[in-house]
């Protein structure tokens, strides 16, 4: 796939700007969690410090449980590759307000920028399309990002998007890391018994 130019922090900020009360965000471990924290803390973020390969499925369980709210999974290419089967699983259920967005820089940033499979041609958009996602986008420029942000605001069909970001490593912004507390405050923000 084409190497990306988009700035990951700016892309995350664009996606969660004016997010509204109903947007729930599930980032993957590592960089996308730091990106989301950098965009501003929110109890409706379920930050991840582990569970590699599980992010899209956390999003599915959440979307099925909360059909009136929008759920955005925003993860990295390495994390998505570890849970590729979950795209087939989501393709069966297709919750209309679930978006799976992959920040693809073609490398494993957290472990030292080793090449990921997308750099050798693994086509995540093609995988999502073949798994039955009704909307599949390949976002490579500012116009595409603006379009994705607008679609996320009015989400009505299960959406997959690959966002081609540059392979850079901005300074880490670390959110809270106590998993029980991240869960507790997320549920409390939804009005559930903490």
């Amino acid at each position: 796939m084409s190497q990306g130019k988009l700035d990951r922090r700016a892309a995350m900020a664009a996606l969660v700007a004016d997010r509204g009360e109903d947007l729930l965000v599930v980032p993957g471990l590592g960089s996308t969690t730091w990106d989301l924290a950098a965009a501003g803390d929110n109890p409706k973020n379920f930050y991840s410090w582990g569970a590699m390969g599980g992010t899209a499925m956390i999003g599915l369980g959440l979307a099925l449980a909360q059909p009136a709210r929008r759920v955005a999974v925003i993860t990295g290419d390495g994390e998505m590759l570890m849970g590729l089967g979950s795209l087939a699983t989501i393709g069966i259920k297709r919750p209309p307000k679930l978006a799976v967005i992959v920040f693809d820089n073609g490398v494993y940033g957290e472990t030292g920028m080793q090449p990921s499979h997308t750099q050798s041609g693994a086509d995540l958009v093609g995988v999502a399309r073949s798994c039955g996602f009704p909307v599949c986008l390949d976002v490579t420029d500012e116009a595409g990002l603006t379009d994705l942000a607008a679609r996320l605001k009015g989400l009505r069909e299960t959406l997959f998007a690959r966002v081609a970001i540059a392979a850079e490593e901005p300074p880490r912004v670390l959110p809270i890391r106590d998993g029980a507390e991240i869960k507790r405050r997320f549920r409390a923000a939804l009005g559930l018994n903490a």
């Binding site: 390969g53 956390i58 369980g61």
Partner: peptide
């Protein structure tokens, strides 16, 4: 992971 998401919701 599905069960985690379900409980979050």
């Amino acid at each position: 992971a599905l069960a985690a998401g379900a409980w979050l919701g």
